[in-house]
Design a protein around this nucleic acid. Sequence first.
DNA 1: GGGTCACGGGTACTGCGTACCATGACGGCA
DNA 2: TGCCGTCATGGTACGCAGTACCCGTGACCC
Lengths: 228, 228
Amino acid sequence: MTQSTARESTRERLVAAAYDLFDERGYDATTVDAVAERAGVGRTTFFRAFRSKDDVVLPDHDAVLARVGARLDAVPSGAGATAVATAASEAAHLVLDHYLTEGDRARARYRLTRTVPSLRQREVAGLQAYQRVFREFFRGRVGDGESGEVRAEVLAAGVVTAHNHVLRRWLRAEPGDPVAALDRALADVLRMFAPPRPSRTRVVVLETPDDVDDLEEVVRSVRSALEP
Amino acid sequence: MTQSTARESTRERLVAAAYDLFDERGYDATTVDAVAERAGVGRTTFFRAFRSKDDVVLPDHDAVLARVGARLDAVPSGAGATAVATAASEAAHLVLDHYLTEGDRARARYRLTRTVPSLRQREVAGLQAYQRVFREFFRGRVGDGESGEVRAEVLAAGVVTAHNHVLRRWLRAEPGDPVAALDRALADVLRMFAPPRPSRTRVVVLETPDDVDDLEEVVRSVRSALEP
DNA sequence: GGGTCACGGGTACTGCGTACCATGACGGCA
DNA sequence: TGCCGTCATGGTACGCAGTACCCGTGACCC
């Protein structure tokens, strides 16, 4: 084995361990130490393979952003939701080549050539699920001291990340209905990015009389939410 | 003195100490301990006044996000590109006004007299990538019945991104006049949220005879739009 | 055999953010 | 006047991300 192959193996083991733990405990509850321990390597090795914990989910981030932006730039003004969803899907697929390892890439290419049409149909509806992912991600993180880069790039990278994770699980060829597998993977993504603690804080803007009426509804909902 | 006033005073002292230290050492080199010490309060008090170190320069974050959402919710589903773009621009300016008021106050009090590390190149490139992504997200959702919540989510991400970018650029000011650097950063953000150029692409559905009649009208309007 | 080099491991450190507990000031109350 | 609840504050300890530095190991070359 050459050195580069050995390093790739270590990196792959870290990725597998990380995603396993993300599935089990969620992203925030997964520590770097746990990832390194499960991968059977030291903590230092982890930070040599990845610049940060986020880097496991968002490798080579800048290149990804550039490619996504270039693909989206090709969408003409006034295009409908389907065109945008297709572009997002294609952009995500575009970066899969950058994300997946050699072995996964071969499998991905093989499967995508046969299943991309149906996948795209699925994506058009699935984009709304991704929006939920983003919403949940933001709810738990915006303004809570997360680094600015994470906040800034969630929108652009979130779709790629979710897509990546979904396809990564999907391409593992789970037996059974692939659509059901995709749904399970999506559920895993939602759980992975769920906020650590549900917020009991509600922000209400009062500018019009209707806002006051809405406030009463908010009060009721909060009150009921606080009931055991 | 009431308690709320005393707490406000503490908060103000913390803000003053923080910007003092940001001025002297830069944002990253300023620790929370140093801010608390200079303000003459304990570390715990700092985290009671601000949820995080970022919160010192990103105050009232949730409220601002709510205002953005409220503004965008006022746009009816199916509104045209101009209405959405206008709402987005107004919401962006609303947020920027809020934050830049804080910034102006601090800027008036504390001059950035020291040169701190210059803006990293990847941040400059990143802003352009965000610009494309956000614009495309908006463009794809215009008129397709998406809820205002989705638009709010997207623009909130953009606003947070943009504002954070401005502040980072400011706090890590480039060599030269910090005020001019801030103005340039602001100009970038405002340009980022400027309404996109009017589309020259029209999607026409032909299902009834009336549609054909409409096509002629479309042709005329496009033709006139193409006139200089 | 010895030197080099890439890689992994270990250790200690800084800093952010949280949890928990003690304290002292303030105000109500008997 | 003295007791007591409340609350802002401060101190301490902890967890975790990320960095710096040093050391061990094994492959490779001269």
